[in-house]
Design a protein around this nucleic acid. Sequence first.
DNA 1: CCAAGGAAAATCGTATACTATCGGTCTGCC
DNA 2: GGCAGACCGATAGTATACGATTTTCCTTGG
Lengths: 229, 229
Amino acid sequence: MTESMTDAEIYREVFDAIVEGRLPPGEKLGQDELGKVFGVSKTRIRPILHRLTEQKIVVIEPMRGAFVARPSEKDAREVNAARQIIEEGVVRAATRAAQPRHIKQLREIVAAEQAARDSRNAGQAHRLTGEFHCELARITGNDVVTDIVRELVSRDSLVVALYQRPGSGACSLHGHAHLIDRVAEGDENAAAQAMRDHLQDVMDTLDLGEKRGRSQSLSNAFAHLGRAG
Amino acid sequence: MTESMTDAEIYREVFDAIVEGRLPPGEKLGQDELGKVFGVSKTRIRPILHRLTEQKIVVIEPMRGAFVARPSEKDAREVNAARQIIEEGVVRAATRAAQPRHIKQLREIVAAEQAARDSRNAGQAHRLTGEFHCELARITGNDVVTDIVRELVSRDSLVVALYQRPGSGACSLHGHAHLIDRVAEGDENAAAQAMRDHLQDVMDTLDLGEKRGRSQSLSNAFAHLGRAG
DNA sequence: CCAAGGAAAATCGTATACTATCGGTCTGCC
DNA sequence: GGCAGACCGATAGTATACGATTTTCCTTGG
């Protein structure tokens, strides 16, 4: 018998599938179904769903089941506002702590973002956009801060999946480049302002009101595992 | 048969017991034992322990059990640094959004803190100290931000339980009062500086290196429930 | 032909039973 | 007398089984 995956691995698979959009908002996450996909009983699926619920990217409706979260318009605004508040502090700390190698690292991510966009790889581009903010947090050298930013970024993924109008997305490139310049200059106030403007820009390009979201089968989302569904 | 508590109620009981220090760092949280205390099977205890683990106030050692977290010296520094970074953004947003009624609310909390300290009620005083920071976050009107601050404050409770030297504690009163004045003035930069100074003060009064922590029985911690242990 | 009611299927939530692993202790040997 | 190794009790982790609730579909009446 093929040995089963660890809880951490299963968690990571589901988390990535949601953040990368393979499991769209509203998708049903059946316990037995997921258990079959990963070859374990639902006993080990439950705590994983609860953990994802803690991070607000899954919602559990009592006696009905777990679903990928579909953040409301209010949720979308609140998460974005929270990012403006918290990442202001983060970018200030990062500006104080930034070394040349950090700046270089950030520019590399933006370059990769550009490349992904040029090659029409929307999924990769979106992943790197989030990665940029996490990397910025990492400059602070504080894992607690990094984890909080990561959580906020993952929640924003769902907002983007639901509300981003098809064409947009390129605006973040300029915002990131501008932000790096301010950090590189060491101007903490300007960096903070750039961060708020950037996040507000992202918010403004959303098409709140019109929820998108195609449906996809669970086994398709985990097709790379090569297991039966 | 007496109807059993909801998961949320059980969670709250354990959470409060830890944050208020009735369950000191290092305390063993046996699944069967907790199940008996609350009159449920361990099936419902497990997800609660996992949730507390997510919040980093409980650690689960595989095949050994769950324990109230005993943050290392490094953890203590990191949580404090994270608070300085994040609450800087929070206090700036709060300063921009503050209304007179908010200032009044904050001053009331400090007054209550003073009263608790005067009446030698250390537990209540400590609770109000945390409440002050949560209330400040609440001024932003953003639940996401408030939850994050609440989590950081609860983690700090364990640090204080482990490392605070017996005598100290009064320093936070002056820091809070000073902070309110800066917020009331609307001077965002001064408020941010006051927040950082205040949190640094708290850090500096800790006696890192010497871990305290008396042990207490589980049934004592939940004595107010009136159930058998 | 549509709507309302009910029954059956599906699925979630909980308890119980079982297995694996860990810590403590007792014994035997050095 | 002290240390090492094995046994035993305790407890965590997992699966299975069962009860509760919802959803779906079919039947029946208007």
